[in-house]
């Protein structure tokens, strides 16, 4: 039986500072009994379809920028902070030391010029709802002058510690999630990038 999930799937806007859902969000399905080999009832399935409406808040600029081919980091510019000048990627809205609001900075060129793999792993197992192609290759990436190490997915090339990697961006039909930015080995031709992604 079709759950009808494809029809009029819900979307959300913000109007006057409030979430405004429209369309269909809930597709009720019947519970079904769980029985043992003897047919004795032990429990029941509870299927359901739930949509969360999640705010990116001050990180929204980071996720918006990926679809425009930009990697935005943040930097503490509070001269009174003991770690002033620290650049954060992953993006932090506030400095973890002084809690001042960080300055948004563009590190796209820095990332294209010198991104080095700090560590990596390869897996063919995933949890439910994975959208990445198997095998998944995590790479942890060091950037010049950045005090943290970003985790990303390498989609072209075999990972190794110390290798140089280049970010690519989903500039066609971005989904506004972290996988709008993926990584490829240095030297990967543009013709070999996944569909919708560009340097």
């Amino acid at each position: 039986m079709s759950c009808g999930c494809e029809e009029n799937r819900g979307t959300v806007k913000v109007v006057n500072g409030r979430y405004k859902p429209s369309g269909k969000f809930h597709f009720p399905q019947p519970n079904t009994p769980i029985r043992n080999e003897q047919g004795v009832l032990l429990g029941i399935t509870n299927p359901r379809d739930i949509v969360h409406m999640h705010s990116y808040g001050g990180e929204a600029i980071f996720f918006e920028s990926l679809g425009k081919g930009k990697l935005m980091a943040s930097r503490c510019d509070n001269s009174d902070c003991e770690t002033t000048g620290s650049i954060y990627m992953p993006f932090r809205i506030h400095c973890p030391d002084c809690l001042a609001k960080n300055t948004v900075i563009d590190i796209t060129d820095k990332a294209k010029a010198n991104s080095i793999v700090h560590s990596f792993m390869i897996t063919e197992r995933t949890g439910a709802f994975n959208t990445l192609q198997i095998p998944i290759k995590f790479v942890n990436i060091e950037f010049d002058g950045v005090c943290t190490i970003l985790m990303g997915a390498l989609v072209r090339g075999e990972p190794s510690i110390g290798m140089k990697v280049i970010p690519i961006f989903k500039t066609q039909n971005p989904e506004y999630i972290i996988t709008d930015m993926l990584w490829v080995a240095e030297g990967t031709p543009a013709s070999d990038l996944p569909e919708g992604y560009s340097f």
């Binding site: 897996t123 995933t126 996988t179």
Partner: peptide
């Protein structure tokens, strides 16, 4: 936002 979407593993 930053980790889970990468494989959910």
């Amino acid at each position: 936002d930053w980790e889970t979407p990468m494989g959910h593993i």
